[in-house]
Amino acid sequence: MGGFLSRCLLDFFVAFGVVLGGTMLAGICAVLTLEPPIYRMTSVAEQIKIWAMVAAIGGTIDPIRAIETHFIEGHVSPAIKQILYIVCAFAGAHMGSTIIQWICKGGNNP
């Protein structure tokens, strides 16, 4: 169980970090190009979520193929674990995007 929980946390934080890091770098780029960083950061935060999930789970085809193979062979437990890894990666990417949205909206409100 420790390995499963460890992998879930790793997927969560990798996706979270990809969203935060990519968005912060996009904000720096916006400042350097004299654009408003709030708009650039919020758009990048939404656009990068799927790629953060892909980076966290290690690819798009292999996890889906693993789910299919396990279901066809009748091994439900490994397939459910793979689905939970994807859910954890989604949760991390979504939380990173939500934090960026909060930060950017906080800059607009006095």
Score class of each variant (00 low, 15 high):
Leu32Met: 15
Ala93Arg: 02
His94Leu: 15
Phe71His: 05
Gly21Asn: 05
Phe16Gln: 10
Ser6Val: 06
Gly59Cys: 10
Cys8Trp: 06
Arg7Val: 03
Leu25Cys: 10
Val14Ala: 11
Phe90Arg: 04
Val19Ser: 02
Leu32Phe: 15
Ile67Gly: 07
Gly107Met: 14
Arg7Glu: 09
Tyr39Asp: 00
Ile100Trp: 02
Pro78Val: 08
Gly59Val: 04
Gly92Ser: 10
Glu73Met: 13
Ala79Glu: 08
Gly107Lys: 09
Met41Ile: 08
Leu84Lys: 06
Ile103Val: 13
Ala56Gln: 10
Tyr39Phe: 10
Ile72Leu: 13
Ile83Lys: 15
Tyr85Gln: 02
Arg7His: 03
Gly2Trp: 15
Thr60Phe: 07
Glu68Asp: 08
Ile48Glu: 00
Ile99Arg: 03
Ser97Lys: 04
Glu73Arg: 12
Met95His: 09
His94Pro: 09
Ile103Phe: 01
Gly17Ala: 09
Phe71Gly: 10
Ser77Asn: 14
Cys104Ile: 05
Asn108Gln: 13
His94Ser: 12
Val19Asn: 01
Ile28Met: 02
Ile80Leu: 14
Gly107Arg: 12
Leu32Ile: 03
Ile48Ala: 05
Val44Ile: 14
Ala45Leu: 07
Ala56Met: 00
Glu68Pro: 10
Thr98Asp: 03
Leu10Glu: 01
Lys81Ile: 15
Phe13Tyr: 02
Ala79Asn: 06
Ile61Tyr: 05
Gly2Val: 13
Glu68Cys: 04
Cys104Asp: 01
Leu25Asn: 00
Ala66Ser: 15
Ala56Phe: 07
Ala89Thr: 11
Tyr39His: 07
Asp62Gln: 08
Phe13Pro: 07
Ala55Arg: 03
Gly96Ala: 02
Leu10Thr: 07
Glu35Tyr: 04
Gly3Met: 01
Phe90Cys: 13
Glu46Gly: 03
Lys105Pro: 08
Ile38Leu: 12
Thr33Asp: 04
Val76Met: 10
Ser77Glu: 14
Gly96Asp: 04
Lys105Asp: 09
Leu32Glu: 11
Phe4Gly: 14
Glu35Asn: 01
Ala30Arg: 01
Cys8Phe: 09
Cys88Gln: 11
Val76Trp: 04
Val18Phe: 08
Pro110Ala: 08
Gly22Cys: 00
Tyr39Ser: 14
Met24Gln: 03
Gly96Arg: 02
Cys88Trp: 04
Arg40Ile: 07
Thr60Ser: 05
Gly21Val: 02
Met95Gly: 10
Thr42Ser: 06
Pro78Arg: 11
Leu20Asn: 02
Thr98Gln: 08
Gly2Asp: 06
